[in-house]
Amino acid sequence: MILFFKIAIQDIRTNRFLNAVTIITIALSILIVSALILFFVNANDYMNSWKKGIKIIAYLKPDIVEANLVDIKSKIQGVYGVAETDFISKEEAMKRLRKQIKRQSSLLDGLKDNPLPDAFEIRITEQSANSEKIENLAVQLESLPEIDDVEYGRKWIGRFVKVFELFKLTGYAMSGIFFIAAVFIVASTIRLVIYSRREEIEIMRLVGATDRFIKVPFYIEGIIQGALGGIIGLAALFATFIYISTNVEHGLSSDLLHVRFFSLRLSCTIMLCSMLVGWLGCFISLRQFLKE
């Protein structure tokens, strides 16, 4: 094994230019793909916090007595997709309304009775945060006899989620394309390396070297290229990330845009993918070469 490493490193040194090209290609692909992934990770975070904020308000019929509230609450809680329910009494609702309209709140002083109904504020689970499921949920809630009316953000909630999902799909597709492109570029540089060493390889075969003995150093070379490309790509992204986030956070409230970099686990996964690119590139060109 040490021997194979020695051969691989010797090879990288004698083919510096080709190796540099390969490593830069991998680094660029990793940079682009992981920039996409980074965007989606953050956008996803944002979506999730937004989804958590989706509320359904279920207004109760005016004749409900307080003794039944616990019963109603447990009924609502029993509907699939409901995460949390909070009772908002009409007094509470009035208070909130006053707060919301502040200056014009004097208008409300003229009212003799509180016209607002009692209500339950319902938060839904993340999985249920798309248009069909919300609608479904609303219908179910409306069918409860104690509930008068249900209010929620209707169609546009779901649309927004759908657009985001589509966006994500495009991202996956682009990542896939970059992955394949990187593999083929690695394959063709390894092919050039093999070509430049074909005489040597032929001699190795003539003195009794197996295909495996000849191939292993190439695989090691590919994996080293992948690892170096991955490190460079991720480092470049990290540098860009730091640069952008320190400059942008001044302008925007950091509350709204709380961005983060990859977790260690995701970084490692990207590194592994990068090494896989190197390995696959080798695999393809060696398979062609050994068929000849």
């Binding site: 021997l3 005489e199 040597e200 003539l206 070297a209 197996t210 003995f213």
Partner: peptide
């Protein structure tokens, strides 16, 4: 095998050329 044109590997030292046979084994 001893080839008409020697067929030594030009990028390897004398030692490595000879060692290759045993390493491959």
């Amino acid at each position: 095998i001893i080839f008409q044109d020697y067929k030594l590997i030009p990028t390897k030292t004398v030692f490595d050329n000879v060692a290759l046979v045993l390493e491959a084994m």
